[in-house]
Design a protein around this nucleic acid. Sequence first.
DNA 1: TTGAAAGCGCTAACAG
DNA 2: CTGTTAGCGCTTTCAA
Lengths: 350, 350
Amino acid sequence: MATIHDVAALAGVSVSSVSNVLNQRTDKLSADTFARVEAAILKLNYRPNRVARQLKTGHTPMLGLLVPSTANPMYGQIALKIEAAAQAQFSYRLLLGNTHRDKLQEAGMFDDLLSFGVRSVIVVSSRDDERHLEAAVQRGLSVVSYDRQTTIGANSLVDHVSPDNFQAGYIAAAHLIEHGHQRLAFLVPSGKTVSRSAKIEGFLERAAQAGSAVSAEVIEGIVAETFGDSELADLGFAMAGKLATMKSRPTGIVTVNDMLAMGLMSGLHQAGLRVPEDISVVGMDGLSIAAFCNPSLTSVAMPLTEMADAMVQRAVERSRDPQLPAVNLVFQPTLVPRHSVARPGADKRA
Amino acid sequence: MATIHDVAALAGVSVSSVSNVLNQRTDKLSADTFARVEAAILKLNYRPNRVARQLKTGHTPMLGLLVPSTANPMYGQIALKIEAAAQAQFSYRLLLGNTHRDKLQEAGMFDDLLSFGVRSVIVVSSRDDERHLEAAVQRGLSVVSYDRQTTIGANSLVDHVSPDNFQAGYIAAAHLIEHGHQRLAFLVPSGKTVSRSAKIEGFLERAAQAGSAVSAEVIEGIVAETFGDSELADLGFAMAGKLATMKSRPTGIVTVNDMLAMGLMSGLHQAGLRVPEDISVVGMDGLSIAAFCNPSLTSVAMPLTEMADAMVQRAVERSRDPQLPAVNLVFQPTLVPRHSVARPGADKRA
DNA sequence: TTGAAAGCGCTAACAG
DNA sequence: CTGTTAGCGCTTTCAA
């Protein structure tokens, strides 16, 4: 690989002139010198060594991304959008880590990012406890946390970008109520997270507004060790079995995410219950793949592209100017009606 | 951040002793020095700067991964397995790039990997032309290509790891034939790739062995610009419309991958055709999520974990010893029977 | 067994 | 406008 010295020698100039060309400092160069250097660069097919540059400047065009698992299509989609935003906005590349929501995995990734000189990281995790994120900030990382909207006014060192989860729960319940459902349930894996709590609150709030005619309950399921890459779908499938045997079964169900909904619908079908004739289901995420279930899944979609853009922008800009105050950005979800919701008692087979 | 000098000062030794501790050269150190240095490292919470180390050694514990799009669950799953293998085998981190099968994107990624000093890359691309991969090898990258099994004996500079796609097509057709299907079709997006061709050949071969009673055709669909993140599912959905209006419709369909199959089943259902009663469908990939379709999708599963392990091992080992000859590893797929295949004419509703 | 010192390739004063 | 030079933090001869 050619170095800056080779280019300087070939162009008959000093290395600093070459460096100035590389860094667009045209004001410090004669047009002639500039041209000669450019020619030399071209002829040698020279590419500056970013490692050397980084050792000097302390910067590197890389962004860390921590997600629970790219095997979950939601996070695969997020990774795609974030990569696109990082390239488009800053020509940054992505260092990816699957954490399985494990604190140790996250900590290991932070260590490595730091030692690679990466200064910005986006964390999609959802654990309730955020102290290890603050610790990472103290060590010099600019961290953006996804889906963990903090209380307004809370003083944090990390940026937060999140859909309005309360609103998501609210409009999901509203959709079912508008279709005449009176026995609602919210399905969620056990384990408290900020986003789950907010969704549940929104769901319950809307149900409460409907008065005593509408009942609402929260049903927790436990993710088993034996579940595979699609553990949430596995859980939904398992929970369908429980639902099927309930005496006073809910007619309208909201799930905390689309994978759970897909597993649930599959399990309900297996148990001989029809969606939406016997039970209506509303998912959350807006996974494109959920449009291809049978029936296609009605879902509360999150504005992924906008959120990805915002996350990348905050992560990089704050790594460049750590003085910037942390912000708390909230994005509005929208209901995407498809075919998993109907009036209770309706029967298409009629 | 503490540097090696801080540690040396605190321990009262020279930087080279610290370096020797860092690199486990215990033979060149007294036990006492070693202990003092370790203590200093601990007290300062010192982490060696990998950038500086890399500038000196030329190595960095990073692996590049190029996939068409992590929004496709198949590639999300591959990314997950590869990351796990890279961590487990070598403690390497992953630099991820979504290429959308675009040659320019791939080239840009190669440039960046090289300038970051990354020496190994795994490419999941499937374009027929492989010259740009060979070019990357010339520039110093160790590249492993997935799903592009080359002709035996072909002399290549890149490693190939691939499922036996011919066999995949073969057992998919066999499965349908065993269920009594006589009019088969293979669905594929237009655009030739090595893996698609092999699958088609295997499919046709098995059909031919069944004699003149069995007919087999290949149906190509064109991915439209308007399709979204799940473009393959969109395509399957669109192709279902075409199938529904065919005069002499196939009863057993094999799709080149699971996303296409999911879209297809959704489209068939939309068109009033039942799976598997009216049409049986066999997918390929073995996506865990395909177990939650309705009906659940019978599919030819590829041994992802084993392939990921092999790819990582080859990529890293060859980057360390470029003398190693390129290999061509082939892995066997297995049929995962679920509920999208039945005897033609069978009717569960009876 | 330990330390001094050269340099990996680049940037950015600073001097000319 | 151009060139010289001192590092960035580490590894690794080579001497002591």
